[in-house]
Simulated assay, not measured.
Amino acid sequence: MEEVMNYIKPELVLVSLVLYFIGMWFKNASFVKDKYIPLLLGGIGILLCGIWVFSNCSCSSPKELAMAFFTSFTQGILVAGLSTYINQIIKQAAKNE
């Protein structure tokens, strides 16, 4: 877990918890198939991280703008992956083997 945290910005760890609860809501919703949940969480993660990144950067040059998009994308995917990881830890801990 510590290795994962080396790549995710500390400010965005909370997004993974938000995505976990959104994923649980999608799981209980009848209009979303299970196979689409990780894709939806990835997209929502990119969107939420993008909001945070663009609200905290000046983006005065094309290079800074490109870096902001890259950061939004990678952080969004990482927090979505972390939320899935959290979900699997909870599921595995509940199993009786």
Rank of each mutant, 00 (worst) to 15 (best):
I44F: 06
V79R: 03
P62I: 07
E2Y: 14
V18W: 00
A29P: 05
Y20F: 14
I77Y: 10
E64M: 07
D34Q: 10
K33I: 08
D34W: 11
V53Q: 00
A93G: 08
Y20I: 02
K33N: 14
G76H: 04
S83T: 00
P62K: 03
S30T: 13
A66T: 12
T71K: 08
S61R: 00
A66P: 08
I8E: 07
V53F: 00
Y7N: 09
C57G: 11
G45E: 06
G42M: 13
S55M: 12
I86W: 06
A68G: 01
I46A: 15
F69Y: 10
G23V: 04
L12Q: 08
Y36W: 13
C49S: 08
F31N: 14
W25F: 15
L47T: 11
F26R: 04
Q75W: 06
Y85I: 08
S30M: 09
L17E: 02
G76W: 06
I22Q: 04
S72G: 04
P38D: 00
F31D: 07
E2A: 12
L78T: 05
F54R: 00
K63P: 06
I46L: 13
Y85T: 12
L17N: 06
I89V: 15
N96E: 13
G23H: 05
I77G: 09
L39K: 06
M67V: 12
F31V: 08
S58P: 04
I22K: 03
Y7M: 12
S60I: 06
I77F: 15
S58L: 09
M1L: 13
S72R: 04
S16G: 04
W25A: 15
L14H: 08
V32P: 03
I46W: 12
A66G: 14
T74P: 07
L65Q: 07
K35H: 11
M67E: 13
C57R: 14
L41H: 01
S16C: 01
S55A: 11
I51P: 04
L65V: 10
L40C: 06
F26S: 00
T84E: 14
L40Y: 04
L41I: 06
F73T: 09
M1I: 09
I90P: 05
N87G: 10
I90Y: 08
L41W: 01
N96F: 14
K27H: 11
S72D: 01
F21N: 02
T71L: 07
V4F: 15
I22C: 07
C49A: 10
L12T: 12
E3M: 10
K63I: 14
M24T: 09
C49F: 02
L39D: 05
Q88R: 14
T71H: 02
N6F: 13
T71G: 00
L78V: 08
E2I: 11
I89S: 10
E3P: 09
K63M: 13
V15M: 02
E64I: 02
I90T: 07
I89M: 13
F21C: 09
I89W: 09
F31C: 12
K91V: 15
W25Y: 14
F54W: 10
T74G: 06
V32N: 03
Y20H: 02
M67L: 15
M1W: 08
K91Q: 11
L40T: 04
P38N: 02
Y20K: 01
I51F: 13
S83P: 05
G45K: 03
L48G: 01
T74V: 10
T84K: 14
I8G: 04
S72T: 03
K91E: 13
N56T: 01
F69Q: 06
Q92S: 11
Q88A: 13
W52P: 01
I46V: 15
M24L: 12
